Computed example of a mutant assay.
Amino acid sequence: MKTIKGIYIIVLFMLCLIVSHHPALAATGSGDLLKQPAVEVSVSLGNAANELKFEPNSLEFVAGKRYNLRLTNPSQMKHYFTAKDFADAIWTQKVEAGKVEIKGAIHEVELKPGATADWVFVPLKSGKYTLRCSVAGHTEAGMTGEITVTN
């Protein structure tokens, strides 16, 4: 019993250290961040001419701010918004598409022709991240981009 209590105290202490070094996590815990209006950023996966590109293909976010990334696919083929390292460096509140809301860790979002999805998140870690469409041949055809997160 003493061992379990000791482990619990150590884990609690480590969690306090992590939260104190990540203001976005601290704000999330207190609910302040969820009251912050989400900054809307729109990205088109492809276009009506079926060109294989993200518009825009360069995205910039600030760590600790809440965003709503609106993804649309106006093309006649499916596309993926794939940025695993970026997804690992953010806290996802939700992904909403139609009448479905998904919560938890998200690493890529598939959009079928004409689809729209909203990805609400808070960047936690600064860096440069690669964006690509993982449909066979799309990355090679130039459907790539870069995501930058600053402090």
Rank of each mutant, 00 (worst) to 15 (best):
A48I: 07
K112A: 09
L34D: 06
L69G: 01
A97F: 00
G145A: 15
A141L: 10
T130C: 00
A87P: 04
K99N: 11
C133Y: 02
A49W: 07
Y67S: 02
A136M: 08
L124H: 07
V41M: 05
R70A: 14
S44A: 13
V41C: 06
N47C: 00
S42P: 03
E40N: 11
S58R: 14
N151T: 13
N151F: 13
R132T: 05
G98A: 00
A63F: 05
K94L: 04
T92C: 14
K53W: 12
Q93T: 11
W119F: 07
V39F: 00
G46Q: 04
G127L: 10
M77L: 15
N57G: 15
Y80K: 01
L111Q: 00
T116D: 10
V39T: 15
V120W: 03
K103T: 15
V95M: 09
G114F: 09
W91P: 01
K128E: 15
L111M: 09
R132N: 13
L52H: 07
T92E: 05
H138T: 05
N68T: 10
I90N: 03
P74Q: 06
I90W: 05
M77Y: 15
V41E: 02
D32N: 12
N57L: 14
P74L: 06
S44H: 01
K125A: 14
L52G: 00
E55W: 00
K78N: 05
L69P: 03
V95S: 01
T72A: 12
L71Y: 01
A63D: 07
K128V: 15
K125Y: 13
V120L: 07
E146W: 02
G104E: 06
V149N: 14
H79E: 06
R132Q: 14
S44M: 11
F86T: 02
V149Y: 09
V95W: 02
V62D: 07
K128F: 11
D85W: 11
G142Q: 03
E55P: 01
K65L: 14
G46A: 03
F61G: 05
V39K: 06
H138D: 02
R70Q: 10
S75P: 02
K78A: 09
N50Q: 09
S75N: 06
P113Y: 12
G64S: 03
G46T: 02
F86Q: 01
A105H: 09
L34I: 04
G137R: 01
Y80D: 14
S44E: 01
E101T: 13
D118C: 00
V62M: 02
T139M: 10
L34R: 10
Q93Y: 13
L52R: 00
E101Y: 03
P37K: 11
G104A: 09
N50P: 01
G142I: 08
D32T: 13
V149H: 13
E40A: 12
F81E: 09
P37C: 05
S58K: 15
E96Y: 06
W91H: 14
F86I: 07
L34A: 07
A97C: 00
H138L: 10
T139D: 11
W91C: 14
L45T: 04
S42I: 12
A89K: 08
G46M: 05
I90M: 05
T92K: 03
E51M: 03
E110S: 12
V135C: 09
A136W: 02
V135S: 10
A87D: 06
F61T: 04
L131F: 10
T116M: 10
E96K: 12
G98Y: 12
V149L: 11
L124P: 03
L69S: 02
K53Q: 10
